[in-house]
Each structure stands twice: as structure tokens, then as C-alpha cells.
Design a protein around this nucleic acid. Structure first.
Lengths: 166, 166
DNA sequence: GTCCATGCAAACCTTTTGCACTATA
DNA sequence: TATAGTGCAAAAGGTTTGCATGGAC
């Protein structure tokens, strides 16, 4: 396990979920769970496959996708989409169960943050619309501190003043 | 034009953008722009193609994608991703320039709302992290009023009590 | 022994690209 | 007339599926 954080409690929880569902607890499912729970990152399927390979485990991509589907259904793992054209996965049982993301448009770095206000907005807006919320997603896109001090500039390409000729 | 709202001012703006960029203003680009600006919906590429076809216009998908890319670059149109596996597009020059989305997990209905608080959160969180925000995205997923009164239930499938055996 | 999972490859879906031809400016 | 756009089809990239084999319970 190469010095990654201990993921065994979470893997055990996943095993319990599988048993609750009457599904076999297989080597491959545990291996995928270990990688996801053992990383603080938002992993792509490719990255998960790479970590498994570096541990000497050859698990087919289809199996990884199927294991991730179960992990998401167990609610132990969340599926993320930062608009990169593929999905990422993160475990949801860290100290910060619900958090939002700051995403750098230049280097793709992702910073997490929490905001109680978002929950208030979710509740208020939902009440106003008769909506029953189950989850929300708040993402802020822009330039991270590193890229800003490195002098990276966002190049606005839109109309100089769209509204003026309406 | 089939009784859709008048989209010509926006199409003219798009034409101005194209000229500013030294790009030709073609029939196809104007036709795609007309469809997007003429609809209050969040349209997929398939839906745009269908509307064009019903107007008797046969425009290749590749051209639609290329026109949408220009519309997004002009900042007159926003690209949306509700996790359906494909993108949607909406015009950004309506009365509500920046808004968030309530998305029904059962019928996929999308309701828009505005929240000044989100802008405050964006500013505060960004300041705290030295982040330079350019845009944000807040989506609340759940059950819309119609589906709730229709008796639809969200079926929680996760672990009965994940945390208890950690 | 039954049932489900795995692995591989093929299929799938959306989006992008290459290229011969056509239209804009 | 030069330059860029269009349309078609093929390719690309991520994800899903079919099927024969192998493993969990």
C-alpha cells in the first residue's frame, strides 16, 4: 500500500454494503476501493488503473468502471465532473463530508472548501420552488494563487460590449 | 421562425463578434445562433439539429458544433453540463444573465433561480484562497414539485448507516 | 452447484478532425 | 480571388455491453 493512508475501515464498509446487497466481495472490488479510499485526490479511471498497475495488479477498465458504479451507489464515493471530458471519483468519508470546489482554469488544480451558506441557499431556494433537494454542487472556476503569481492571464475573447447594441 | 421569440438582436450581436474576429458571417452560423437565441431552453446539439431540420435547414453536426464553439467564445452562449453525457447550450443575454439551476433527478426538468448570496460566497471564498474567480456554477439536484406531488420517491440505496462501524 | 464477476474486445455516444468542395468578403 | 467554412465520413476518447471463462458463497 506504499505509504498511502489506511483505507481499510472504508474498504470494510464497502464490503458490508456489498453483503447487504447480496453481492460478492471480490478481490478486484476491494482493490479499487482501496485505491479510491487511500487517496485524497479526485481520481480519474486512468489514474486508478495506473495506481493498481504500480501495485502489480492488472484489473480491466470495465471492472474498474463496474466497481466504481457500486462505490457510488453505496454513497461512499462521489462522482465528479469538472468538464474535462471524463469523470473523477473521491471518497466521501473524510473529515469534510460535503464540500465545494475551486477549479483553476489554467493548471486544473482543485481546492476544496466548505460553506454553510450554500446549505442555507439550498434550503431556501428549494422551499421557494417546492423542490426536494438531495444534493448540490458548487464550483468556482478561475485562476488559482500559483497561476496568478506566475503571471498567467485569462484572455477574454468575447464581445467588447455585448449589451450596447441590443 | 415558428413563433419563437425574436432572436435577431442577438444574432446581430453574434455577427458583430464574428466580424470583430475577422471571421465570415455564414448562413449556418446565423441559423444555429437563431435557434439558440430563440429558445428559452437548455438545448442539446441533437435538439438544435432537430429544430433546424424542422425549419427545413440541413446543417451538419460538425458545423453545429463549430458554430456553438464560436457562440461560447463570444460569451453570448453558455455551455452547460448536467451530467447527462452530453452538453447543453443556453443564451446568456436574457433578463437573468447569471443564474443557477435546480435539476430534477426524476424528470430532468431544470428550473432557474438567482442568488446574490452565491456571489458573496464566490467573493469571500476566493479572497480566502487567493483565487481569482471568473465564473461559478451552483446546481441543486433533487425532486421537483411535480414529481413530488406525483408520489415519486428517491430510492436511497447506500449503506444504512455508513459511519457507525468505522 | 448456482450465481455473479471478470476480462477482453467490440459497441456505443458524443465530440473532433481530415479533406474535397463551396461560399464569404 | 484568397481565405475560411461546410459537409461528409472517419477518428477519437470515455464509457458500456456481450460473452465465454473463472471465482465467490
Amino acid at each position: 500500500m506504499k505509504g498511502r493512508p489506511d483505507s481499510s475501515p472504508f474498504v470494510r464498509l464497502f464490503g458490508r454494503f456489498l453483503r447487504e446487497q447480496g453481492l460478492p466481495v471480490t478481490h478486484q472490488r476491494e482493490a479499487v476501493a482501496e485505491v479510491v479510499f487511500g487517496s485524497g485526490e479526485h481520481l480519474s479511471v486512468d489514474e486508478i488503473e495506473r495506481v493498481l498497475r504500480s501495485d502489480g495488479q492488472h484489473i480491466g477498465k470495465a471492472t474498474i468502471y463496474r466497481a466504481l458504479d457500486l462505490l457510488v451507489r453505496s454513497k461512499l464515493v462521489a462522482e465528479l465532473d469538472f468538464g474535462e471530458g471524463f469523470k473523477r471519483y473521491e471518497h466521501r468519508l473524510s473529515a469534510d463530508p460535503i464540500h465545494e470546489h475551486l477549479i483553476c482554469l489554467n493548471c486544473n488544480a482543485v481546492t476544496e472548501f466548505q460553506s454553510d451558506e450554500v446549505h442555507r441557499i439550498e434550503a431556501m431556494v428549494s422551499a421557494r420552488h417546492g423542490f426536494r433537494p438531495t444534493r448540490h454542487k458548487l464550483e468556482i472556476y478561475g485562476l488559482c494563487q500559483e497561476c496568478t503569481v506566475a503571471g498567467v492571464e485569462v484572455t477574454p475573447e468575447g464581445l467588447t460590449c455585448p449589451i450596447e447594441t441590443v
